[in-house]
Amino acid sequence: MGIKFSLAAVVGLILAAYIGVTGAGFYHFFGVTMPYLAIILFLGGVAYRVLNWGRSPVPFRIPTTAGQQKSLPWVKHAKYDNPSTKGQTFVRMALEVLLFRSLFRNTKFEAEEGHRLYYQQEKWLWLAALTFHYCFLVILLRHLRFFTLPVPSFVQGLDRLDGFFQVGLPGIYITDGLFVLAVTYLIIRRLVIPQVRYISLPQDYFPLFLLLAIATTGILTRYIYKVDLIKVKTLAMGLISFHPVVPAGIGTIFFIHFFLVCTLFAYFPFSKLMHAGGIFLSPTRNLPNDNRIRRHVNPWNYPVKVHTYAQYEDHFREKMVEAGLPVDKELEEAPSAPAE
């Protein structure tokens, strides 16, 4: 059901843009209103979600301990799997955000023919996820050439590197192909592995179908149903300089692509895609495991009157000695400086 619903939603969006532009001629809505709405929802939504997470107190360190914690000097400490300082935690976070380290440890649990159960490394998900995310980043940065004039040299450099093979004109981008491959893998994985399929919901399929549709329309715009790039850039530059104009004669395929991208941005903060911000605020990742090293005080504790053992002993020392109970400090040394 989830698949059909998500697929129908994406097809519906494409049809909405197609009919809205070719039939009703809502150029201004799809070219100006939607992007502004999407970017406001995106930035506002992300800020809201992050601040909302920030309101949750994290009084105690709860990192996932994926290795030996800092212990006695001869016990080897797994610094980045069980960090004990801020610096080590920073490295752990960087490895997680940039290289998806925890996904790299993915294993699968399977029953062999007969009755043997075994664990096995499963790196394909990590590979596809990493490919997908980095391709998406490169594609996003490449699109800066529509929003800047003059275009920064790193964007041009990226463009040249991505179009390295110089196949055809306009040149094929490596990331375009890899992106489609990776997203396709992520969809197929969801459909083929029974356990994953069982837990997949419409909100798992929808972003995948949406991303695939965005990539497909983008590729069509660039190679097949080509549009006037100069007009597209005029539209984009108008948007970011807050003097929006929609030049006449941009192909419908562009508006479909643009509308899908706007949908992605608007949808982003309210969906699982917020893992982009969530990863930084995961208490199981971003906290050093120093529960036993530092004292952590619950931030909403009201002041409690405490009576420590030392105070207790000071109070009752004579009686304790009389009763033959062991004391930390003997009677004669008690008034002097605190014992070691």
Binding site: R145, F146, T148, L149, P150, V151, S153, V155, Q156, G157, D159, R160, G163, L169, L229, I230, K233
Partner: peptide, 13 residues
């Protein structure tokens, strides 16, 4: 147009 579209003048096209 090539400059406006942000193509790198030296190498692209």
């Amino acid at each position: 147009c090539h400059n406006f579209a942000g193509l790198d003048k030296a190498t692209d096209p």
